[in-house]
Design a protein around this nucleic acid. Structure first.
Length: 401
RNA sequence: CGGGCUGUAGUAUACCGGUAGUACACGUGCUUUGGGAGCAUGUAGACUGGGUUCGAUUCCCAGCAGCCCGACCA
């Protein structure tokens, strides 16, 4: 009963399984996609000196009372155990990461520092919807940076803008994703979002193509436009989905926990912070929404669950044997290949499934391909395939050293 | 949380106040094999609780769940 494209294709293709509204399991195919996205994000986080950690999902109530968000955050899950003790199910981790830092950081010499994690988050959305785009439990990368000066923060923040652009480029939606001026929500007055154009988007943004920046409708007014130097007439309205967000937190969360350091002169100062989020599960859904066609998903090579979808057509003995041989050789050469060796399936069924799954390359072994002394290779985005030799196939797909 | 719609097999659905039919999927056998194959055969189903009734899957009420719109929202 799902209507949204990402939910329909991902569920039908067996990438995910819905447990309840806004809560999904990742099945083998979907988990491989998530892992690929995760690796790209991890790689990019490490380029700015991010250190990966893993924090808990159960948070002490006191920490959330300290920042006032126990009462003010409407989408906070509060759970209690049999003794009546209440804890928060984490929607974000300022309340945990700040006290951690307080324990280990005290001198200006310790800065700057940035930590991140990739972990499930919980938000009591009043209405979960659109498949992977708005869940109640979802996978997210959250990074927190700590600084001794606004200048230092801004250097890092600007680096993060570039890092985020790289990430969206690497997962295949760079051309559709815009740095967007937006409201800061519960974090700060303003923030920067990364918005990807798709008809399924929940946000409306106004894009200035020339500078490749946009303004979210929620802060779209004359004052904001002027401060950003944007001309109203040049802006184009689009539906979009928020795939990332970066915030200038200043001392909003360091202050309540008295996260401070001493400078060269022995004077105490409050630490400045930034935070940087990307929803991995939403990103996966967004890629499907943005790139799929009417037959199914089209994965970019960088995050496809497999590089190659190998089909054997017909139950002829020679075909079955040849296909298995090809499969073994591909595996030996380190190629990620999904082998459709299902017996008794018609060609059309296998083709249709291949289109639905959206693996970038499709290789067919059949009586026809054997007669032509090769393997038929076709891209998901192409109509017609061509016959190639195994060596040609290997050299095309072999992972670059 | 307000509004709308909907809950029947793994999925999609049909009929019905007298205990459910079809398609796909799945199992088995045979045939078939380049764009969602065929025959045979088998397995499998009324969200929960109350009410009305001789009898409820069907009608009524409540709850729960899902989708959509809105409000809300890194």
């Amino acid at each position: 009963d799902e209507v949204s494209k990402n939910a329909e294709f991902l569920i039908r293709g067996g990438f995910i399984h819905k447990e309840m509204a806004g809560v999904y399991s990742y099945l083998p195919l979907g988990f491989r996609v998530v892992k690929k996205i995760e690796n790209i994000i991890r790689d990019e986080m490490n380029t700015v000196g991010g250190q990966e950690i893993l924090m808990p999902s159960f948070h002490p109530k006191e920490n959330w009372e300290k920042t006032g968000r126990w009462d003010s955050m409407t989408d906070l899950y509060k759970v209690s155990d049999s003794s009546g003790r209440e804890v928060a199910l984490a929607p974000t981790h300022e309340e945990i990461v700040v006290p951690i830092l307080k324990n280990y950081v005290s001198s200006y010499k310790d800065f700057p520092i940035a930590v991140y994690q990739i972990q499930n988050k919980f938000r009591m959305e009043l209405r979960a919807k659109s498949g992977m785009l708005r869940g109640r439990e979802f996978l997210m990368k959250d990074m927190y940076s700590f600084h001794t000066s606004q200048e230092d923060f801004e250097i890092f923040y600007n680096k993060m803008k570039e890092v985020y652009k790289n990430i969206f480029k690497r997962v295949g939606i760079g051309h559709l994703t815009y740095l967007t001026f937006a409201s800061g929500g519960t974090f700060s007055k303003y923030s920067h979002e990364f918005q990807t154009i798709t008809g399924a988007g929940e946000d409306t943004i106004y894009i200035d193509e020339e500078s490749a920046v946009a303004v979210n409708k929620e802060v779209y007014n004359d004052e904001v436009l002027e401060s950003l130097g944007l001309k109203k007439e040049k802006l184009v309205e689009n539906k979009s989905i928020e795939v990332g967000n970066i915030f200038d937190l200043k001392t909003k969360y360091s202050e309540p926990f008295d996260l401070s350091y001493v400078d060269e002169k022995g004077e105490k100062h409050i630490v400045l912070m930034g935070c940087y989020g990307i929803g991995l599960s939403r990103l996966m859904g967004t890629v499907v929404e943005a790139l799929a066609d009417d037959k199914g998903i089209i994965w970019p090579e960088s995050i496809a669950p497999f590089q190659l979808h190998l089909l054997s057509l017909g139950d002829d003995e020679n075909v079955t044997k040849e296909a298995s041989d090809v499969y073994e050789k591909l595996l030996k050469n380190g190629i990620e290949v999904l082998f459709d060796d299902r017996a008794g399936m018609s060609a059309g069924e296998k083709f249709a499934d291949a289109d639905l799954l959206g693996i970038p390359h499709r290789a067919v072994v059949s009586l026809r391909s054997i007669k032509e002394n090769g393997i038929e290779l076709k891209k998901r985005t192409e109509e017609k395939g061509k016959i190639v030799t195994l060596d040609e196939l290997l050299s095309l797909l072999k992972p670059k050293a």
